[in-house]
Design a protein around this nucleic acid. Structure first.
Lengths: 192, 192
DNA sequence: ACATTAGCGGAGGTACCCCTCCGGTTCAAT
DNA sequence: ATTGAACCGGAGGGGTACCTCCGCTAATGT
């Protein structure tokens, strides 16, 4: 929980103080999330500016580099994941973990972003975000393992990569995605 | 087994008859496989021609469209999968299925290609290839299910999407990928 | 050996994208 | 209301990719 706040604070510090500038900043983040979700990490920046109803110059002023923009969007998503982890932490061990993972799968943008972030270069922001994700998930995993509900021969890293795989595959319908996720999670649980 | 032959015959029919032309055709396929593996389905065609040591015109003569080229490479991979299915069919039900799936994961090129093929538009060639993949895997799955080793509430489609997810995620080392695949496959097996 | 013709390669037109730069506009503080 | 600073938009230069077209090269069959 402490780390996520750092991430969003980092983002908030970037946000311009003037009203119109702040509006544009937000619009850019929204447009970028959409575009990245659709076309992956190399969506057209000019297209993003267009979607945001903003000149290309404004985009570059706020985010000097494609990576700056991508990282900003990514940080936002990761932040949400941390919040969800806190929300579900009241539930029983296995339910909490499963609920968190299901939310993990739901993030539309994150689908591509997380995959590409897990592979790609190791910027410090990416590392921080990944760490933040791990920090959010680790307690949930540990608790489920201590309760004897999850096999102990796997790490949070294994778990997230497994789930992010399912996340990044296209499914005809979400019902099937959920079924397949359930099957994978059965592999994660200890045999009865 | 019958379908895969159709696929490769389809490909063989495209292959030019003159010696130099056939060489170029093959070089293009090899270069394309590499390029697609590296950069995904929208690798640069000019780069592919360069890698193959061939003019861009030659590429376009053999493959009028990016999709033609992509489909050709893809068909090749799928073809191999069918062959592997035949190879492993002698082993015990579960081992055969698991071995086939592990080979499925190994195809470097296929990693990106299969993912993008599963989502993307439904060309008839893609449909044929997918069908061919299903035809190769279905007997293995059915046999394992009849032997009581695999849960019966999942289809070959579920299975391939699950595995192709793991396929499309980056892992620091192949050992981890194999471990995670093993966990997923544990979810596929019936509980002892 | 030679004619025929399939096949070759790359120049070049078009389109898009990246990113910089700066004249004009709008905010906010007085 | 005024004014200075912050901010805006998009024109434009450089790059790359796509794809067509056609003069040249070399494989094939006799």
């Amino acid at each position: 929980m402490p780390d996520q706040i750092v991430v969003s604070e980092f983002l908030a510090a970037q946000r311009p103080r003037r009203a119109d500038a702040a509006r544009n900043f937000d619009a850019l983040l929204v447009a970028a999330r959409e575009a990245f979700a659709e076309h992956g990490a190399d969506a057209s920046l000019e297209d993003i500016a267009r979607r945001a109803g903003v000149g290309i110059g404004t985009l570059y002023r706020n985010f000097p580099t494609r990576r700056h923009l991508f990282e900003a969007v990514y940080a936002n998503e990761v932040d949400d994941l941390g919040r969800v982890a806190a929300e579900v932490s009241g539930e029983p061990p296995w339910q909490a973990l499963a609920a968190w993972l299901r939310r993990f799968v739901d993030y539309a943008m994150t689908k591509r972003a997380i995959r590409e972030a897990l592979e790609g270069e190791e910027t410090d922001v990416f590392l921080a975000c990944r760490q933040s994700m791990y920090d959010a998930g680790t307690p949930l995993l540990l608790r489920a393992q201590e309760a004897g509900e999850v096999r102990t021969d796997m790490s949070i890293d294994d778990l997230l990569r497994l789930v992010s795989g399912i996340t990044s595959v296209a499914f005809p319908d979400e019902e099937q995605r959920d079924r397949v996720l359930g099957i994978a999670l059965d592999g994660v649980r200890t045999k009865a």
